[in-house]
Computed example of a mutant assay.
Amino acid sequence: MCGRIEFTLSERMHHTLRDTFQIDAAWPKQPEISPTQQTVFLTREDAWTVHTGRWGLVPPGMDLQTARKYATFNARIETVERSKSFKDAFRAGGRCVLPLSAFFEWPNKSKVRIARPDNRPLIAAGLWSQQDTPDGPLVSCTVMTRPPTKDLTEIHDRMPALLLTKDLDAWLQATPAEAKAVATGSWRPGLLTVAAAS
C-alpha cells in the first residue's frame, strides 16, 4: 500500500514538473501527507490542469460521511475495473497523475523514505472524482498501486504505480487494458533509493 506521501520540491523537481506539464505553478510544500488530507494531482484535456483534493476517493453517488468508512486512498490496478469504488473513474475519464517527491513505508516497523536518487519527482498514476455538495465541490483522488519492482519486494508487497514521462498519455487516454499495462509495467527496478526516515 501507499499510506504516506511527500510533496516537497527541490529546485530541480520544480523545473522538471514545469517542463513536463508546461505549468509554472506555486506548488505547496507538504513534507508528509496522510490519507484524507489535501494533495495535488493533475488532469489533462487540451492542457494540463492542477487540482487539489482529498486523498481518498469519494466515488460518484457516495457522500463524504459514508466514504470515511472505507480506505479509498489506494486502488489496486489488478482489480480496478471490478471495484465498486473505482471502476467508474477508471473507465470514464477519471484518470489523473499525482506528483510526489517521495513515499514512505515501514518495513520491520522502521520508517523509510523512497525517492529518486537523481532528485527528480515521482509521478504516480491515480484516479479522481468531483461531486457537487451543499458545501461546494468535493474533489478527491486515489493513488493506484501495483506489485513492487524486484528491488522493493523486501520493503512492501505493494508500491505506487509510478509512471515514466513517456507513459503519461497512455495512462490518461488509452484503453483500460493499455492503461492497466502501463500502470503495471512503466516503472523499472533500480530507479529508486530507500533511506531511513525520521
Rank of each mutant, 00 (worst) to 15 (best):
A25T: 06
P160I: 00
A197N: 11
N74I: 12
A181V: 03
A195Q: 15
I123L: 15
S101A: 06
R82L: 09
T149Y: 00
M1F: 14
T133K: 09
A92N: 15
T20H: 02
A161P: 04
R188G: 02
P99V: 04
H156G: 09
Q38D: 13
A75G: 07
T175Q: 02
S10H: 05
A26C: 09
G136E: 06
K84P: 03
V112K: 07
Q38H: 12
Q131Y: 05
T79R: 11
A181W: 12
T145W: 01
R18H: 10
T149E: 15
A195D: 14
P107Q: 15
L17P: 01
I123T: 12
P99W: 07
P28M: 09
T153H: 10
N119A: 15
A71I: 01
L162W: 03
D132K: 15
L57A: 03
L17E: 01
M1A: 09
E178G: 01
G190Q: 08
Y70Q: 03
F103D: 01
M144Q: 04
A161K: 00
T49P: 02
T165L: 13
T72E: 02
S186R: 01
E45D: 13
T153K: 15
P107K: 14
I33N: 07
W128Y: 13
A183L: 05
L64T: 00
L57Q: 06
A47F: 05
P147N: 02
S34I: 13
T165G: 13
W187H: 06
S129P: 06
A89M: 06
P176W: 01
G94F: 02
P31K: 11
T184G: 07
R91P: 02
H156F: 11
E178S: 06
F7V: 09
T165D: 15
A195L: 13
D63R: 10
A124F: 06
P189D: 14
L191Y: 01
T66N: 14
L164C: 04
T142P: 08
P31R: 13
T184Q: 14
T165F: 07
K87Y: 11
